[in-house]
């Protein structure tokens, strides 16, 4: 991954939903820069340039704020309700020599042995939390699927990490499993399991109480 990506930012003087809506309408993304015990600053970034950088796998962004340049790490992204557009970005100030904890996406490589035996691969987690230098953040963590047979599972501890990268997630975190697919239930089978009408909480207890009271009398 090409390490940094330079983006020009503009300071947002006005905050609040009405003002951020105007910023978005102008083709920019509202963002916040924080960290290093400095005051947070509300900025806006060009939406197109930011998206291009993100799609090329850039995590580190050099934000140009007037004459000032700050190295930041994309910490969080907020999407709209349809997941199409980025509506807000959190940028954390970092130094290249700093160690950070960060979630890195997992890339499954190869065809699992189990898929030839009729199994399917189920990905339980799509990222791993690792600890590394800001300059050494890997783009993805490759998990080899070659030897995964039916009934096997890959845990976080089994993954080979690049040099200088330490695992921050629990080593027993389940990443991927290979298993056979159980036959889907037919509508008739489901109908048998389903009640004809749901039980009403409280009504059955009331009925029991009434019955109990009747017996006493």
């Amino acid at each position: 991954m090409d390490k940094t990506f330079v983006l020009k930012a503009e300071v947002r003087d006005n905050t609040g939903s009405k003002h951020t809506a105007k910023v978005r309408a102008a083709g920019r993304i509202p963002a916040i820069i924080y960290g290093h015990k400095q005051a947070p600053s509300a900025v806006s970034l060009d939406a197109h340039n930011f998206n291009v950088g993100l799609h090329h796998g850039h995590r580190l962004i050099d934000v140009q704020l007037g004459r000032k340049k700050e190295t930041t790490l994309v910490k969080a992204l907020q999407y709209d309700h349809l997941g199409r557009d980025i509506i807000h970005v959190d940028l954390m100030r970092v130094d290249a020599s700093e160690t950070v904890k960060i979630a890195v996406p997992i890339e499954l490589k190869g065809t699992a042995q189990g898929t030839h035996e009729g199994g399917i691969i189920e990905e339980h987690v799509d990222s791993l939390e690792v600890e590394c230098l800001v300059s050494d953040i890997p783009e993805t963590i490759v998990v080899s699927m070659k030897d995964v047979a039916v009934g096997d599972a890959v845990h976080a501890g089994d993954v080979e990490l690049p040099e200088g990268v330490k695992l921050a997630s629990a080593p027993d975190l389940l990443l991927v499993t290979c298993h056979l697919v159980a036959a889907a239930k037919t509508t008739e089978e489901l109908e048998e399991e389903m009640p004809s009408a749901p039980e009403v909480i409280g009504e059955t207890e009331k009925a029991d109480e009434d019955q109990g009271g009747g017996e006493k009398e």
């Binding site: 489901l190 109908e191 389903m194 749901p198 039980e199 009403v200 909480i201 409280g202």
Partner: peptide
Amino acid sequence: MAMMPKRVKHRK
């Protein structure tokens, strides 16, 4: 019979 809850607090 389509999907429905098994227990409910209120019927309607």
